[in-house]
Design a protein around this nucleic acid. Structure first.
Lengths: 245, 245
DNA sequence: ATTTCTGTTCCACAATACGGTACGTGATAT
DNA sequence: ATATCACGTACCGTATTGTGGAACAGAAAT
């Protein structure tokens, strides 16, 4: 089903460049205009994109996709199992709490409860980030086999995102050993001025599927803070894992 | 492109029933097993679904769709334009502030800032709701033409969601006239014990594209509260509309 | 006025999606 | 132990349908 593959590529291209026209998409994808045009019409007919209200026919996403996004990974009952603990964590720490899932060598942020403080760290929901430098990512990596970590490290190197530092494989391994020893991961190198602590969440099959983190501006973060936050995460993580397993 | 249409239907069906097998999908969609099977393989190859880790092959969504979700409707710079005002509104009211967009006769909740209070109203992000009973929905409806309201009313009746009351068309019209007069909409019938006030956000093309609301538990809500909240929403709404227009 | 972009339409060809049928395999029932 | 069922998968001949080059009209830029 080559047409499906193409249509999905067009869909993603629309998402990345909306509002966008046929020709730009065609050159972007290296596809004939006719093919792209046909894909656009089909996607429109299916209700996934709509013509923008501008002059020239520009295309943009409908919210059809957002329905899917919400269901992704929902069959574990992950959100439902984790949200109460996130609420509790925010209450106990007054800092921003994040829930990120593991997907295809990256992590995706799917839920967030914000710190009530004026100065706080907020990442966009649905955003993707490297696993090698984030607290959530490292917490998950520490639970994977050497081969899996190798693959993710290689994929990250290959992706070559600008602005995302990539640690050497051996340096990463040392970090991961520390994470395994402690049971949680920390980061201060992901976002400037933000210190984060994360623990992995283990799915029914025994592998890590997500991670929970607390992000604190370094101006508010001290040794005592960090210790209590790590302990709270370990406690809640254990409770969540018991419930899911 | 019939195959694309089918594949997208399969994708949505997987989302609704994951983890799910070929046969169930086939009977659900009224399609031959072979076709569904082919669609599944294609979707897998494109990275949108993955086989679940069981004996029988069950399919589930990857987080590929989450990339799209973040971009849906984002090209106005809507979130960026509105978020500062949401922050300010929460600071001023200490109640939960919601941002919902108008999509295909329903509203979709895309951003939320929570009340710091222990008792608070929280709707799931990405969730959809009827336009006829929510404060956000009515605020938007009041800006649409009679024909558009007719169409949305009809679509809502047809959808026939259990648990969602549908007002009569003429009663709705009376309500909308009141909303037009005041400039904002209110609701206490959407969620039990929650009073909400909403204003519409007008896009560059002049039509309503979203709405902002404040939700207050009725135990905390009094006449004075409601007046100040409505006034704050009107002020911020006007500022946002100026910036977008 | 001319050029160079758009987005859209047309068409002959062959690729490929189609869906009925059949096979292997576990689970359940007899 | 045997029979039956439901499931996921593989096969295959047919014709449906996606394909992409080329040509078109209109708008914007030169």
């Amino acid at each position: 089903m080559n047409s499906v593959r193409k249509a999905l590529l067009v869909l993603e291209a629309v998402a990345d460049h909306q509002p966008v026209g046929v020709s730009e998409l065609a050159s972007q994808l290296g596809q004939p205009k006719s093919s792209v045009q046909r894909a656009l019409e089909t996607l429109h007919g299916a209700g996934w994109i709509r013509p923008s209200s501008g002059e020239r026919t520009r295309w943009e996403l409908t919210f059809r996709a957002s329905r899917l996004a919400r269901k992704a990974g929902s069959h574990f009952g992950l959100r439902e199992a984790v949200l109460p603990h996130m609420e509790e964590l925010r209450r106990q720490t007054s800092e921003t709490v994040h829930l990120a899932v593991f997907d295809d060598s990256e992590i995706v942020l799917i839920e967030r409860l914000e710190s009530p403080h004026a100065v706080r760290h907020v990442e966009p929901l649905g955003g993707r980030a490297s696993m090698l430098v984030t607290a959530t990512g490292k917490a998950i990596l520490a639970r994977l086999s050497t081969e899996e970590v190798d693959a993710i490290h290689a994929a990250t190197v290959e992706r070559n995102d600008p602005g995302t530092p990539v640690p050497q494989r051996d340096a990463l391994e040392l970090e991961l050993e520390e994470v395994r020893r402690l049971g949680y991961a920390t980061t201060s190198s992901w976002r400037d001025g933000v210190f984060a602590t994360g623990v992995a969440i283990i799915g029914p099959s025994g592998g890590p599927i997500a991670a929970l983190s607390i992000s604190t501006p370094e101006t508010r973060s001290d040794e005592e803070n960090r210790r209590t936050q790590a302990q709270l995460l370990l406690d809640h993580g254990r409770q969540i894992n018991e419930r899911l397993g």
